[in-house]
Simulated scan of single mutants.
Amino acid sequence: MTPATAPPAPGARTTRTAATRAAIMTAAERLFAERGVSAVSNRQVGEAAGQANNTAVAYHFGTKTDLIRAIIRKHAQDIEARRTPMLASVRGSADIRDWIRCLVLPSTEHFAALGAPSWYARFNAQVMTDPALRALIYEDALSSASLQENLMGLRATADAIPPRIRRTRADMARQLLVHMCSERERDLDLAADTDGAGRWHWAGTTVNDDAGTWEELATDLVDALTGLWTAPISR
């Protein structure tokens, strides 16, 4: 067998496979964020990732749900690594703000590290609109030891709140966190594509806007969620 027809070395094949998987995940994350999960086919993801084979997504990941889980787990590694030392610094605290900071900052710091443009915050918001996929996110999230500790610490400081009201406020907090991060990511993406005068263009209209930073959003979210959890109960 001549060198020209020799199969690639195992190491080269592994590297190529990893690069293909990464390209597919990046393309899927962007398309799902921009169009919604149900509106995007595996074939479209493969094409956006530069794959000529229509079955590339199925070959490397299996189902669309498997692909979504892979994207979530990829980002979860960094978020988990950020949360763990934060929890160590507040362990035993009776201040609800400490536990809320541990809930908010690992995600906003991760989003900030992604730079602009990025799509993961908007990807999360899209996935959360699908009941089955939302259950998938919960399942994966609750397998995180650090998140479990975070939620237990938060609950301990809010234990005086009746269970039904506590569940409602937890739903409100989740909506605020997911969708405000999605909005900030979108604004930063738009702001990165300005006309050179600090203005971005949307729907044919020139808009002056200060997109703000992830750090500012994190501070605002901690303030808002602290207020939500400590608000008076009138029912």
Score class of each variant (00 low, 15 high):
E185K: 00
R169C: 05
R174Q: 12
A156I: 06
D171K: 05
D159E: 14
Q175P: 15
A170V: 05
P162Y: 00
Q175R: 12
R186P: 11
L190S: 06
M180Q: 08
P163Y: 01
C181D: 01
M172D: 02
D187L: 10
L190R: 06
T157K: 05
L176D: 00
R166F: 15
P162L: 02
Q175L: 10
V178F: 06
V178P: 14
R164L: 15
S182W: 15
A173Y: 11
R164G: 13
M172S: 02
D171N: 12
R167G: 13
C181F: 09
A158T: 00
L176M: 14
M172A: 09
R155K: 09
R166I: 13
C181Q: 02
D171H: 07
A170K: 11
M180S: 06
I161G: 08
D187I: 05
C181T: 01
D159A: 12
L188E: 05
D189M: 08
T168V: 15
R155E: 12
H179L: 06
R174A: 06
D159H: 14
D187S: 04
L176Q: 04
A160T: 09
T168R: 15
L177G: 00
D171T: 13
R186C: 02
A191T: 00
M180L: 13
L176H: 02
L177T: 07
A191G: 03
R186T: 01
L176R: 04
R184W: 07
S182D: 05
R164Y: 13
H179P: 12
V178Q: 01
D187H: 11
P163A: 06
T168H: 15
M180D: 02
A160Q: 10
Q175S: 13
A156K: 09
V178I: 05
D159L: 09
E183H: 13
R174E: 14
E183I: 13
I165A: 07
D159I: 12
D171A: 10
A191H: 01
R174N: 12
D171L: 12
L177H: 11
A170T: 13
E183T: 11
A170R: 05
P163D: 04
T157M: 06
A156M: 12
R184I: 04
A191D: 03
R167N: 13
I161L: 10
D187T: 06
L190F: 10
R174Y: 15
I161A: 02
I165L: 15
A160H: 15
C181N: 03
D187P: 11
A156C: 08
S182H: 13
E185Y: 02
I161D: 04
R186S: 00
R186D: 02
V178K: 00
A158R: 01
D171Y: 06
D187C: 08
P162H: 00
I161Q: 09
Q175K: 06
M180H: 07
M172E: 04
I165H: 09
A158W: 06
A160Y: 13
P162D: 03
R186G: 01
L176A: 02
R186F: 12
E185Q: 04
L188T: 00
A156L: 08
T157L: 08
M180F: 15
R167H: 14
R184H: 14
A158C: 01
A156H: 14
E185M: 03
R186E: 02
M180E: 08
R184M: 07
C181M: 05
A160G: 14
E185A: 00
A170D: 13
A160I: 10
A158S: 02
A160W: 13
T157C: 10
D159M: 13
R186W: 11
H179M: 08
R184F: 08
A191W: 02
L190C: 05
L190Q: 04
A191I: 00
